[in-house]
Amino acid sequence: MISVFQQHWQELLVGFGNTLLCSVIALFFSLIIGSTFAIFEVLPSRFLHILGRVYIEVFRNIPLLVIGMFFYAVVPQYVVSINGFTAGTIGLTLYTSAFIAETVRAGIQAVDEGQMEGARANGLTFMQAMWQIVLPQAFRYVIPPLGNQFINMVKNSSVLAFVAGFDLMYQGDLIASTTFDTFNTYIAVGILYLIITLPLSYYMRYLEKKMG
């Protein structure tokens, strides 16, 4: 297993970097999209509420792999030419944003309603109150679950291997299928994933405990 690292550290490093890169990009965009749909869900507008609900339910109930393959196999033929990394990252973003929307919505609803009313009474518009008063508090509540979403995202980014996304799983698989040392290669890849996910997961548990 050590020899896998010794002989293939360059490929593994590229994969490790791509996995991190894709997870960070997907986290950034899914936070924006997710928060937007979460706000839709708590807005008084019935239309936006339904729109938010439909978006969340659709992306939560379809496998990430199907979404990713759609962007990889279908979109380049009919819309715009994108490579595997981009297709996979878009799929990951859309998929995760549905979960983040649910998390953020729960966070917003956990903030005391009096906060919103108080802010409105002090002359803030709904959006101002949302942005400045409610969301900052909501995010405090949702940091641990968001952290867990990020861990899920790092794990889920392995579907990029299906769409030639050059992520850690893809690189590992390439090494395994050229050296046929499947056993040790997959263990090596597993250790690299754990380097990202395990500390994060312990930190999130620590945060959860601290926040009680």
Binding site: S158, A176, T182, F183, I187, G190, Y193, L194
Partner: peptide
């Protein structure tokens, strides 16, 4: 538990199907 749930399922699947036959 912590080791397992912090790994991608895809990796476990590959390991089970392609790796375990080695042992």
């Amino acid at each position: 538990i912590d080791l397992t749930r912090n790994l991608p399922l895809l990796l476990l699947l590959f390991f089970t199907y392609f790796g375990l036959p080695k042992v």
